[in-house]
Amino acid sequence: MWTSYLVQRNELDDEVWDDFVAASPQQYLYYYTWYLDAACPGWHAIVVEENGKWVAVMPLPLRKKGGVMYAFQPPLTQFLGIIFCPAPMVRHSYYGFLKNATQKAIEALPPMAAFDMNLHPGIDYFLPFFWNKFTVQARFTYLLPLDGDFQSLQKNFSQNVARAVKKSQKDGVAVSLSSDETILLGLLRKEGIFDEMCADTFRRVWEKVRRSGNGFILHATVPEGKVSSATAFILDGGRAILYASASDRDRKNSGANALVVSEAIRRCCEIDGIRWLDCEGSMLEGVEQYFRSFNPVAKLYLNVQRLKYPLLYKLYRKLT
């Protein structure tokens, strides 16, 4: 028998939830309780059971304004949505399982004016969302496989990246390691990449990362002693995630950002168990072109939306 229900954060057992995430084929940083607590405090969740066993969960960052409830993708969280337990089945049974679990999760959603969520890249079965009047759109991210030594990977960088790295090294730009987010946050705010909400989210997430030791920040410093570029990386389940990055526009031609990413790739190649660098990609043409220059693999993921009041959705999007 299939059942599904909505639960509040304080009704969830952290160990049970995190064990489910760790065993899921869609295991990822964004689904663990510690991350959700930092990125969207007070989150809810939908749990789907088959014969009393958890088979799917969906973190739900519910918010309410003016008596209207909605769920949007949390700040600094590339994807979220439903994830499943391992289901080793023949294909027709597997898709039947995904259909039932996704449909039950949708049935448990509370009445909302807007739902806007990116699904895990490993999920390509979206028909229950389509049948329930959700709009489904394709998006792309980039993953760099770290399946060789750094020198082999470096040979496949674009000429623009290779020139930028060479120029920055020739000009005396130095890359250093840090765990302190202060300089990076300053650049992110200065360049208008983060508003105060994103900055607060980053501080909460990075406090957890720093305590666990599962992340690092790289600074690129020009000879005058000024940090011109900084990037934060989080290590998670065999991958390094490029979590936030900013460069000083006054020194945008220094090549410092390319040097930072290149150095991060080199470091990740030397860390046991890290097999991928998640560049997080972008739907912005200029940003997409930059990440593509490091020769990653393009990975499609899906955005699902259901908007009861489209104009109200646009207003709330500006406020959140």
Rank of each mutant, 00 (worst) to 15 (best):
C279L: 14
G255M: 01
S282A: 00
F291D: 01
A264V: 08
A246N: 09
K308E: 09
R266G: 05
Y301K: 07
D248K: 14
S262N: 08
R292E: 02
R275Q: 11
L300Q: 13
V287L: 06
G281F: 00
L300F: 08
G255Y: 03
A298T: 12
V261E: 00
I274H: 11
R275V: 05
K252Q: 11
D250P: 08
F291Y: 13
E288V: 00
S254V: 09
D250T: 15
S293I: 03
P296T: 11
C269D: 02
E280S: 14
L259S: 07
K299W: 05
W276D: 01
V287F: 02
G281V: 01
D248E: 12
Y290H: 14
L242G: 05
N253D: 08
R251Y: 15
S245A: 13
S245C: 13
F291A: 02
S282E: 00
Q289E: 04
V304H: 10
F294E: 02
E280G: 09
L307G: 10
S254M: 04
S254L: 05
L284Q: 05
I265G: 00
N303L: 07
Y290C: 09
V304S: 05
L242C: 12
Y243L: 07
L302T: 04
S247V: 05
M283V: 01
R249E: 06
A256V: 13
P296G: 08
F294C: 04
F294K: 06
R251I: 07
C279P: 00
P296D: 03
K252N: 06
F294I: 07
R266F: 01
V261H: 03
N253M: 06
S254W: 05
C268G: 04
V287M: 04
A264N: 06
E285C: 02
A298K: 13
E288G: 13
L300T: 15
G255V: 06
K299Q: 10
N253I: 07
N253L: 12
S247L: 07
K308S: 09
L242D: 04
G281C: 01
V260W: 04
G281K: 00
G273A: 11
S247C: 07
G281Q: 01
N257L: 13
S254A: 10
L284F: 10
N257A: 11
G281S: 02
A298D: 04
I265E: 00
V261Y: 03
A264T: 09
V297F: 05
R266H: 06
W276Y: 15
G273P: 11
D250C: 07
